[in-house]
């Protein structure tokens, strides 16, 4: 049971209030029609599955209903930071190596 800091509510809440939404920072291509099938499939289907730090999107579903980002360690489940949509992580896998 993770203890998650919602960057919008500005407090720690229980995991059961949240839903995970997969990898964060996937930007929708601005001109999908100009992409090849292969390029489009990269956006559609391919996701990272790191052993270690993972930037992922969550939604405070039973709270403020806001989507936000989380940097979480996939082995230890430690949450290094949560940050608002549109912001960039301050901790990345490169930082910790």
């Amino acid at each position: 049971m993770l203890h998650i800091y919602c960057p919008y509510c500005e407090e720690y809440r229980e995991e059961e209030e949240f839903h995970p939404h997969g990898q964060a920072h996937i930007v929708r291509p601005l001109a999908p029609e100009s992409l090849t099938d292969e390029e489009w499939s990269q956006y559609l289907f391919f996701r990272k599955n790191p052993r270690g730090l993972h930037h992922e999107m969550w939604v405070h579903a039973a709270g403020c209903r806001k989507f936000f980002n989380m940097t979480r360690h996939t082995v230890t489940y430690k949450i290094l930071e949560t940050y608002k949509m549109g912001q960039q992580p301050s901790i990345t896998a490169e930082d910790t190596q």
Binding site: H3, Y5, P7, E11, K78, E81, T82, S90
Partner: peptide, 12 residues
């Protein structure tokens, strides 16, 4: 063995 709480983007 561990920090008190995971640090959030903005500290409480």
């Amino acid at each position: 063995s561990a920090e008190l709480e995971p640090s959030a983007g903005k500290k409480l």
